Amino acid sequence: MTDRISGITLSSVTLPLKAAISDAKVLTGRQRPMTEVAFLFAEIRTEEGLEGVGFSYSKRAGGPAQFAHAREVAPDLIGEDPNDIQRLWTKLVWAGASVGRSGASTQAIAALDVALWDLKAKRAGLPLAKLLGAHRDSVRCYDTSGGFLHEPIEQVLANATASLASGIGGLKIKVGHPSTAVDLARVRAVREHIGDETPLMVDANQQWDRPTAQRAGRALEEFGLVWIEEPLDAYDAEGHAALARSLDTAIASGEMLTSVAEHHELIRHRAVDILQPDAPRIGGITQFLKLAALADHANLTLAPHFAMEIHVHLAAAYPHEPWVEHFDWLHPLFNERLEIRDGRLHLSTRPGLGVTLSEQTRGWTVDRADIGAPA
């Protein structure tokens, strides 16, 4: 007998950050320091008593929009077979077709989509990666949260020591300071501190123009970086392609794009060596799998952005050895932790995503909607 979706709970949750975060976008005046992250959680229940949990998020703005859109389209899932995920994704997109197939609308759908995949893996009694078909039981990980530009270099070095001691495999620090000389001095200090063998990446957060990116990229070659991330505007595929051809260091981008179609432009132009999709931003796991197939065909490395609780599963199921970005910001939201050992994130044996929402998450809920049968 076919199971049916009986109820959905949507929660808008505001996660406060311990300190205001600044990257190059703040130093160039384009954004304010980030003090919180807005999350949209979806909890989907079925007539047989199964439940799946998914989430999406927004930084600085957009959280209320995601919640509002999800509340409008989620009723279309009531009574549906939760196994038909691809069909349901299309149904939800058409339910809100007038607002398009990227941005806040599909990011709202992402929370529902992730919850459906979590539910499906739980029904099978498998971790999500195993349901998808894992290539590995652990994934290389690198830390970002200790390398922001608002911190003095002494603190960045202390953060690097702590990250590596915890078992994390690589480090990424922010660049894009108004003075390239300051960027180079910070990168040099970190490289000397961690040694030549530890993987090191930098992230300019789209704040360079093409000449600056070219000059900075050449100057950074000596540090043996794994990649230079977002050296240019996220939508400048031609500029990224020219940079990728001219530098030995790999070019990475993609986190700010909000659809498979936008990522396809990077792939079509051969603009990046490393693609950095974000499943919640591009519409969820269903869309991520489509993009992963395109990236695999192009022989690209994947390094999914943020949301490691989702991306460790998707990276484990990618044919080419990927990277996953480690952020401890989300720890208070979940009761479980991913194991970090020998430079890698290790999959748990728990079914689905392997996470449950903490009581603190309930306390940070600012809006909630129950659709269908209440929780």
Rank of each mutant, 00 (worst) to 15 (best):
G49E: 07
W364K: 12
A244I: 00
P82S: 12
D113I: 03
D248S: 08
R32D: 08
R4K: 15
A252H: 01
Y235V: 11
R368T: 14
V355A: 04
D367V: 03
A204M: 06
G372C: 08
P64I: 04
A129F: 07
S138Q: 12
E262F: 04
A216I: 06
E47Q: 12
Y318W: 08
R362W: 05
P16K: 08
G54W: 00
S6V: 13
V139H: 06
L126Q: 15
F288G: 06
Y57V: 05
G354H: 01
D370Y: 03
L131I: 02
L257R: 09
R341A: 13
G239V: 02
H150V: 09
F327R: 11
L257P: 00
A115S: 14
E80T: 15
E255S: 08
V13S: 00
T356D: 07
T9M: 04
G125A: 12
Q276S: 11
G343P: 05
H346T: 05
A24V: 04
T365R: 05
I274D: 07
F55Y: 15
G54Y: 02
G147R: 07
Q207D: 10
D183L: 11
R123C: 12
L40S: 12
S105K: 01
L291A: 11
R186C: 01
E309V: 07
I194P: 06
Y142C: 13
K130C: 11
G170M: 05
S259D: 08
I44R: 03
G96N: 14
D84G: 14
V53Q: 09
G63M: 06
Q107C: 06
L157D: 00
T286E: 09
A375Y: 07
L171W: 01
M1N: 10
H240P: 05
I8R: 02
A20F: 09
F148S: 05
V156Q: 08
A97E: 14
G29D: 11
V312Q: 12
K25H: 00
H313L: 08
G79M: 09
L275D: 02
A42D: 02
A292F: 07
G363E: 14
L232G: 02
V73H: 12
Y235N: 12
M256I: 04
H69A: 15
R218W: 02
L132G: 11
R87T: 14
I371F: 04
F288A: 10
L291P: 03
A65H: 02
A316F: 06
L112A: 03
E72Y: 08
L275V: 14
L27F: 13
V182K: 13
V156T: 13
M308R: 01
E197Y: 09
E36S: 14
L294C: 06
P199E: 03
P231R: 00
A303K: 01
F39Y: 15
V190H: 11
